[in-house]
């Protein structure tokens, strides 16, 4: 048990440092990489909690697919150097204040709630816990409605992305037909 607690503290520290790095990095590529390491560490936390399926999906989808696209776009646009003109005067300090306030509040709530482990912990989690089969079964039985709603939402977003690029292309094509010299 103590090994797990030590591991958890170490991993949580890395996750927090990575999250702060993401916010404070002067270079967008570094910020993106901080986020990747944060996702990676969270995936290891999932493994500690006995959910390897979730951990692997976290790495494949977030750390792999999504963040690679982010880095790719940052590089493609050459947008790695962030602008440092501070238009925000009050928001910076205010953000710090509110953030610290929230952290304090959460800590206070966690302490005052007097969290303790339930008296009777199951001796061992069942072998099926968090396995791909059981997650799939839950998704298609108990949570089938939210699952379908989300898939519909994602489909709509996908169609939206395609439609947006199509409209722009058509306009460009028309413009270049009207004044061929300009394009």
């Amino acid at each position: 048990m103590t090994v797990q607690v030590a591991l958890f503290i170490a991993l949580a520290a890395v996750a927090i440092v990575a999250a702060i790095g993401l916010l404070r990095a002067k270079n967008a590529v570094y910020a993106a990489l901080c986020l990747v390491s944060n996702f990676g560490v969270v995936a290891v936390l999932y493994i500690l909690l006995g959910a390897p399926f979730l951990a692997m999906v976290q790495i494949t989808v977030y750390a792999g697919a999504i963040m690679v696209l982010f880095v790719f776009v940052i590089m493609l646009l050459g947008a790695e150097h962030l602008e440092h003109e501070d238009h925000l005067l009050l928001q910076g300090p205010l953000g710090w204040l509110l953030g610290l306030g929230l952290a304090g509040l959460v800590t206070f709530a966690a302490i005052s709630a007097n969290l303790s482990a339930p008296a009777e912990l199951p001796a061992e989690v069942s072998a099926n816990f968090g396995s791909p089969g059981s997650i799939g079964h839950l998704l298609l039985t108990e949570y089938v409605f939210p699952f379908e709603v989300i898939s519909f939402l994602l489909l709509a977003a996908m169609v939206g992305a395609v439609v947006l690029t199509l409209v722009q292309r058509e306009k460009k094509a028309r413009r270049s037909l009207r004044n061929p010299q300009q394009s």
């Binding site: 390897p52 399926f53 692997m56 999906v57 790495i59 494949t60 750390a63 792999g64 697919a65 690679v68 396995s131 791909p132």
Partner: peptide
């Protein structure tokens, strides 16, 4: 028990 996903995850990294 999620070996195939592990392959995908490492491949994407």
């Amino acid at each position: 028990n999620v070996g195939v996903l592990y392959l995908l995850a490492i491949g994407s990294i």
